[in-house]
Design a protein around this nucleic acid. Structure first.
Lengths: 409, 409
DNA sequence: GTATTTACGAACGCTCGCTATCTATACTGT
DNA sequence: ACAGTATAGATAGCGAGCGTTCGTAAATAC
C-alpha cells in the first residue's frame, strides 16, 4: 500500500526495529561474542527487550549461543554470550580472469571460510565455465558449506558493467566471453541472487573496508589494464555505470579513444606492457646499464622497478616518466574528488616504494590537498574480497527489513 | 547513553517516527495542501494515528490548517486540509562577492519569499559588513519575516571552506576579507546556526535540486574563477573539503600551483579574463575581423562569444581553443566521476550554445559515456538558491529527530 | 425534507517496551 | 565447608502507542 513512503507503523514495526538494532550491534562486534549486558549498553534498550530479541534471533538462526567462557571469568553468575551465526547465510565471491579463477566463501560476519585459486594458460570461454564450476565446488567443500546455503554471489568482471542488467560493455580479452553466460551459469549452479560488478570497483570496496572509517577512497588497479574504484563513506560510486575508467584518460601525446581497441590512452602509455616496452627500449639504448643486465631479452616490468630500486639511472628515468604520465593523468581527478587516500593495487603495485615515491612527488606539484598515497595491503585478493563484501552487503540489506529511512532530499 | 548505535527505543520513539512520517508526507507534496485521508494513504498509518500526529504538528506550528476548498468540492463532509506552515522556520541564504551582495529568504517548503541584490564598485571589508547587514534587513522586511524567526543561515564564499570550523583557506579578492568575520557578524545579527560553504558547492546543490531526481551532477561555475560542485544522489560531495577545485587543474602548457597566486592554471588559461585577453590579442592580429569591430579597445568576454555566434572565424578560433583547453582539463574528471550531467553556470555560461557545442564536441572525443552538457537554468541566482536549500536541509535534519539509520557498512 | 456520502471524533483492545522485583549461579573470604 | 556477594536471567505490572470499530457531523443529491 504505502509505496514510496517510509517509516511508520505499529508496534510490531517497532519490535522489528529493535530486533534489527540488536542484530546490528552483534554484527558490529563480530566475530567477538557479546554478553546480553553489553548489548543492553550498546543498543540503549532495556534488558527484557534485548533478551526477547536475542531469543527471537536465536530461534531464527541468526545468532548462536556460546557457553560461558572459562577463561575470562569474573564474579557472579556467568553470562551467556551470543555471536553472529556465520553459517546462517554464507556468501560467495568470484573473480574471473582470462588466466585465473578465484573463488572465496565468506561467513556472514565477514570471516573468510575458504579461498581457492586456479591458474591456467588461457582457457576458451567454454573451458572457463567448466573451471569455474570446479573451483566453486572446491571452495564450497573446503568451507564445508552446502551449495544451497549460499545466500548471494557476486562475480567480478573487467569492463564496464551495467549494475542492473549485469551486461558487460567493453568485453575483456577472453574470446567469446560474455558476462551474461557467467551469470546464467552461476545461477544454474547456485540458487541465489547473482550479481556482477567491475573488478576495480570490487577491489576498491575491499580496500575501503580494510582501511575502515569514512572518507573518500580512490583505489587504482594497475596492471595490464588500468581502472579505479571510488568509495565514498563506504558506498561505491558508480556514476552512470562507468565511473573510475581512468585507463581512458588522455595523455599529453595520445588522446584516441577507439571503440575497436579495448584499451585507452593511459593504459597504452603506462600499462604494465607499456612499462616493459619502455624498459626494453631503454635497455637497448643503454646496453651497459644495470637494467639491461637484469632484464636481458625477456625484460619484464618487474625488472624495471628492480633496477630502479638499485638506483640504476636508466631505469629510474623510465620510472620517472611513467610516474609523471600517471600523475598528470590522475591529478585532475584528485583535485575534483579530493579523496582521503589514493591506494594503488594490481600487478604494478608490486613495484613498491620506487614507483610510489615518484608518483607522490609529481602529484604533490599538481594538487592542492595531498591525499595519502598507499599501496594496497590486500594484493591479489582484493577483488575476491570485495566481491564477498558486496555479496554480504546484499544479504544484510535483503534480509533485514529495517525501514531504510531514505531521505530523497 | 547509546553512543554510536542507532534505532530502537520505546513507544514514544515510535510516535516520533510516525509524526515524522506524516510531516515528511506533507513536505513532499508541498506546497499543495493535503487531506487527512490522503495522508493515511501515503503513510500507510491508521486514521487516528495520522489525526493525532496532525494535531500535534498543528500545535507545534509545523502545519497550518486550510478551510475547505470551495472550488474542488465533492460529495460528503468537506475535509480539512493541512499544508506546511512555511513561516514556521524560514531560512536565509547569503551570497557575498566583492562587488555584489545577494540575500534570499525562503519558506520552509522552499518557496522564495524575497530576494534582494545590491551591487557596488568594490567595497572594503568593513563596508561590506555594513552592506550585508542592510541587505539582510531589506530581505527580511520584504519577506515580512522577523529576524528572530530565521532558523538557519548559509553563506556562500569563494575559496576552500572547512565544513566544521567555517574557516576559509584560499581567500578571495576582497582585501582584508576573512570569512570568520562574516560568520561572527551574521551570528550577531541573527540568533541561529550560521554555516559557510563554497559558492560552487552551493550552486551545484541548487542546480541538482532544480533538475531533481538522482544521479551524479558535476556543476561548473565559470567566471573569473573556475570551480565545480559535485552532487551525488542529492548529497554534496566534499572530499576532505576541497573537492571540485577544477581551477587548479594543469593545462598542457601550465601546471604551476603557487600558494601566492589564488588562481590555478586552468583559471589562468580559460577564466573570463583570460578569454578576454585571448580575444584582444586575436583582434590585434586581425584588425579587419568582426571581433575587432565588435570589441574595439574594451573588448570583453561577451564580445568574443558574440562574434563567434556571428560566425567570425577569428572569434571562433578563440572559442575553439578555450573549449579545447577546458574539455581536456575536465575530461579526466568526467571519466572518473561518470556524471549524469555536466552543467555550466557562471558568467561565461552566458556565452550560450557557441561555447557549449564546442566543448561538447571536444568532450565527446575524450570520454566513454557522454554526459548531458547543459547550461545552468538558474543563472546568477544559483548560489543564493543553493545557500537557502542547504539551510533548509539543515533545518529539516535538526528539527526532525528521526533516528537516521546510518549504515556505517 | 430525506437519503447518501464523506470525514471527524471517541472508546476499546492489542502489542510492545520499560521499571522493578525476584530467582539462579558461581566466585570469594573466613 | 559455608555464608556473603556480585552478576545475570526470569517474571509481573505499568504505561504508551497503534489499529479497529462504532457513532456523529456536515455537506450534496434527489
Amino acid at each position: 500500500m504505502s509505496k514510496g513512503t517510509v517509516g511508520g507503523g505499529g508496534t510490531t514495526m517497532l519490535r522489528r526495529i529493535n530486533v534489527a538494532a540488536v542484530l546490528d550491534a552483534v554484527r558490529r562486534s563480530a566475530p567477538a561474542p557479546l554478553r546480553v549486558a553489553e548489548l543492553v549498553e550498546r543498543t540503549g534498550l532495556a534488558r527484557p527487550t534485548v533478551a526477547q530479541a536475542v531469543d527471537e534471533l536465536l530461534d531464527a538462526g541468526w545468532l548462536q549461543q556460546h557457553g560461558p567462557d572459562s577463561a575470562d571469568r569474573s564474579l557472579g553468575r556467568p553470562a551467556i554470550r551470543v555471536s553472529l551465526r556465520g553459517r546462517a547465510a554464507p556468501v560467495l565471491g568470484l573473480d574471473v580472469g582470462p588466466h585465473r579463477v578465484t573463488v572465496g566463501v565468506s561467513d556472514l560476519s565477514g570471516r573468510k571460510l575458504s579461498l581457492v585459486r586456479r591458474s591456467g594458460p588461457g582457457w576458451t570461454a567454454q573451458e572457463l565455465l567448466g573451471v569455474i564450476g570446479e573451483v566453486i565446488n572446491e571452495a564450497l567443500a573446503e568451507a564445508e558449506v552446502p551449495a544451497e546455503d549460499i545466500a548471494a554471489v557476486v562475480a567480478a568482471s573487467p569492463g564496464i558493467v551495467d549494475e542492473h542488467t549485469g551486461r558487460v560493455q567493453l568485453v575483456p580479452s577472453v574470446p567469446g566471453w560474455s558476462a551474461i553466460d557467467l551469470i546464467k551459469h552461476v545461477r544454474g549452479l547456485l540458487d541465489c541472487p547473482v550479481m556482477l560488478d567491475n573488478d576495480a570497483n570490487l577491489a576498491a570496496l575491499a580496500i575501503a573496508a580494510a582501511r575502515g572509517g569514512t572518507g573518500t577512497l580512490l583505489a587504482v588497479q594497475w596492471g595490464e589494464r588500468l581502472g579505479a574504484g571510488i568509495v565514498i563513506d563506504g558506498r561505491l560510486h558508480r556514476g552512470t555505470g562507468a565511473a573510475g575508467e581512468i585507463g581512458f584518460i588522455a595523455t599529453d601525446t595520445d588522446d584516441v579513444i577507439n571503440p575497436e581497441d579495448s584499451r585507452g590512452p593511459l593504459e597504452r602509455a603506462v600499462g604494465s606492457e607499456a612499462i616493459a616496452a619502455l624498459g626494453r627500449q631503454a635497455a637497448l639504448d643503454n646496453p651497459q646499464s644495470r637494467l639491461a643486465e637484469l632484464g636481458g631479452e625477456q625484460l619484464d616490468t618487474a625488472d624495471v622497478f628492480a633496477a630502479a630500486a638499485e638506483r640504476d639511472p636508466v631505469a629510474q628515468a623510465v620510472v620517472q616518466q611513467v610516474a609523471r604520465t600517471f600523475a598528470r593523468a590522475l591529478a585532475p581527478s584528485v583535485l575534483v574528488l579530493d579523496p582521503t587516500a589514493v591506494v594503488i593495487g594490481g600487478g604494478v603495485a608490486r613495484a613498491g616504494a620506487v614507483l610510489l615515491d615518484a608518483i607522490s612527488d609529481q602529484l604533490r606539484l599538481l594538487t592542492l590537498n595531498h591525499p595519502k598515497l598507499e599501496l594496497s595491503a590486500l594484493a591479489e585478493d582484493a577483488v575476491v574480497t570485495g566481491a564477498m563484501r558486496m555479496a554480504l552487503d546484499e544479504v544484510w540489506q535483503r534480509k533485514l527489513p529495517t525501514p531504510a529511512m531514505t531521505s530523497t532530499t
